[in-house]
Amino acid sequence: MAKHNIMVIDDEKIVGDMAKLSFEQDGYEVETFLNGESALERLKEKRFDVVVTDLKMKGVDGLEVLRTVKKLHPGTVVIMITAFANLDVAIEALRDDVHDFFPKPVKIKELKTSIKKALGDL
């Protein structure tokens, strides 16, 4: 079976770096992006099984990423992480079919469980 692939978008390098390291340990292929713009470019070329994105980013934010993903690749699972646990945004994101929503700092194990669930591995 081909490896599942995951896109991680966060404007802080440390988030992508650590996510990449820990997801790769579980056998996923991971690409990381530091802004929404470059991620959207990549999404035009490639479909990912899972997109983990920060909500608040300068320029293209997490909600815009979510909408684009759903338009281009409706089957892709989107998980939102954010330092600002804002309920309104969470509700809006859920309505837009976000799979899960985590406040930062997020426990990597929980994130992995959510990903596995989404991919039907659990």
Binding site: E12, K104, P105, K109
Partner: peptide, 10 residues
């Protein structure tokens, strides 16, 4: 400690 994703804001 390595079990969480966090950013500088945190």
């Amino acid at each position: 400690g390595g079990d969480y994703l966090f950013d500088v804001n945190y």
